[in-house]
């Protein structure tokens, strides 16, 4: 058994919040550069240039990449041999968010009483926290500041089991078409197939932690990812939806066994500012 003081979790979360919101992951920046070479619309190239310049300015001047520094989405993979001391783990995560958003001059965008008063909580808490128990004695912490523009374009639908792959491709394409410029294309698209309704959406979100170009290890799923990327980029939506050949940088699919009656499909969209950061304790 390994003992970890939750203060270490707090400190790590605060750091990840600041780093994730200021530094575009290298794989994302490279994918945007590569897309610029392929893009056929001059206006879309201008937009891509502004996106690349933004990443440079954010780094150099310590400004958040985007003013929407998001809902703090935190994934904790906790080794089953870990024992936490010094307080409740979930409180420690929220304290990390509180400190990161305060010390990093990040925007506090969370309101309580969602259908009535909608009062800002003032410190961007509570975070949305997912925990998973895994073998070992380590803790992997992954942080995603998830912007509203793309998160609000999430969709879920259950299809007739016999509809298969075609239903998934149609649903993803329709979602991208309807979303237009709202989720800030070029996009990264997470798709969850199978499980139950909440499992499908959780997989769609989790898939967004993958590096651009990283295919699902299952060859059949990897093939679906390639087909989806091609289908989405044929839509012509383009960067910021002005029209162009770069609508998505990648599509990630995760699957799970499901009920004999069901084909659950969830889509969770990420903007071009595909911000994630992780640490292992």
């Amino acid at each position: 058994m390994r003992t970890i003081d939750v203060a270490e979790v707090t400190e790590t979360i605060a750091r990840l919040a600041i780093e994730a919101t200021h530094f575009l992951p290298e794989d994302v920046e490279q994918a945007i550069r590569a897309a610029r070479e392929r893009e056929r619309s001059p206006l879309a190239v201008q937009i891509i240039d502004e996106i690349l310049e933004n990443a440079e300015v954010a780094r150099r001047k310590m400004l958040p990449l985007c003013q929407d520094t998001g809902t703090a989405v935190v994934y904790l993979e906790i080794g089953q041999d870990v024992h936490f001391t010094g307080g409740y783990l979930i409180d420690a995560v929220n304290e990390g968010v509180r400190r990161g958003y305060q010390e990093g001059y990040l925007r506090k965008s969370i309101v309580e009483r969602p259908f009535s008063a909608r009062k800002n909580t003032g410190d961007n808490t509570p975070a949305v926290i997912h925990t998973e128990i895994v073998p070992g004695d380590r803790v992997r912490i992954r942080f995603m500041p998830k912007g509203g523009g793309c998160e609000n374009m999430s969709r879920y639908q259950n299809f007739l089991p016999g509809m298969g792959k075609r239903a998934i491709i149609d649903f993803v394409c329709e979602t991208v078409d309807i979303s237009g410029g709202n989720p800030c294309p070029p996009l990264v698209i997470g798709v969850g197939v199978g499980g139950t309704a909440e499992k499908a959406m959780a997989m769609a979100k989790h898939a967004l932690f993958r590096k651009i170009g990283e295919r699902n290890p299952d060859p059949e799923v990897a093939e679906l990812e390639r087909e989806l990327l091609e289908a989405v980029n044929a839509l012509g939506v383009g960067p910021q939806a002005v029209g162009g050949t770069t609508t998505a940088l990648d599509v990630f699919v995760e699957t799970y066994p499901t009920h004999i009656t069901a084909l659950p499909v969830a889509v969770n969209i990420q903007c071009h500012s595909a911000r994630t950061k992780e640490a292992v304790l």
Binding site: E53, C66, C184, V242, S273
Partner: peptide, 13 residues
């Protein structure tokens, strides 16, 4: 008009 979404650092300049 649109400004490029997700370029808040650049636009602030």
């Amino acid at each position: 008009c649109i400004a490029v979404g997700g370029t808040g650092a650049l636009l602030s300049q």
